[in-house]
Amino acid sequence: MTIEVKNLVKKFGSFAALDGVDLKVNDGELLALLGPSGSGKTTLLRIIAGLDWPDSGEVSFNGEDALAQGARERHVGFVFQHYALFRHMTVFENVAFGLRVQPRAVRKDEAAIRSRVKELLDLVQLDWLADRYPSQLSGGQRQRIALARALAIEPRILLLDEPFGALDAKVRKELRKWLRSLHHEIHVTSIFVTHDQEEALEVANRVVVMDKGRIEQIGSPDDVYDNPATAFVHGFIGESIVLPIQIGDGAIRLGDRQLDLAADGLAPGASKLFVRRHDMLVGPPGSGAFEGAVQHVRNFGPVQRAEVALSGGETIEIDAPRDKELRAGDTIGLNPRRYRIFAG
């Protein structure tokens, strides 16, 4: 099933939750919608599911207009952030719900429903919880039951809204891996919303980065990390050093220091220079574009993090390998291995 979204606009009062969104999701893909809260990602997901309606724009599944159908007809599996399990039903009945409410003409008989539910509970590895109520389950178990319930109707599309948002870090990691392998197994076109970049980069085939109701970049996880298209993406994904620079007369300046970096093709004026912490290479004084004095050094597992006061006046944090000798008080040269400059 392919999904196509064209020029989608949705306003809540004067706030534009979606401000002209275009997106194409390929068949069998596992796509992540990544962005800070308020970026419109959940609204986009709910519109695709039919739980919200856009002010204008188009949504089509396999080329047919989806907006002409209600949520009920769209056959979309939706997994809610807070699970939304039916609290008065057992786990078994929760999963069976979608099968029981089907029109009589197509409804399976009781035996078929039972075996299908059993199959789904096996798939999420929770068949031993069939007789429990949602309040007796842990967060991770509830989320897996919610997924099994959504899969019961054999959805054409699977939508997950912050599926692991309410879980603790360890369970999140496990469920991430599990979701990936599950998707590998069932191959249904899936979109999941997250504000956690690690989650998006680890699980998805493609990542859509959103901000303020607009799509900033669509690309593979490597792509959005290595080649961020906008200042927002660079700042949001991975940790970045951001330096305010001036471009003019064929040179780049940080404060009153001219940087030894090529300024070809850059528009003159105030800009921002983005560098990843680990892309700032440490060398002897005078060897790089920047120079600074080391303030503190702390060790973080495989790297050491140094706070450096640049001679241009800014203080930055860099990550250097542990074998590099760095001490507070040292003067060092810094050379960005790769960097990006965005206007503004």
């Binding site: 009920r72 979309v76 599996g77 939706f78 399990l85 609290r87 719900f97 979608g98 319930r149 019961a152």
Partner: peptide, 10 residues
């Protein structure tokens, strides 16, 4: 949310 879940389940 439970109502939304029910409707999306058909």
């Amino acid at each position: 949310q439970e109502e939304e879940a029910a409707i999306s389940l058909g």
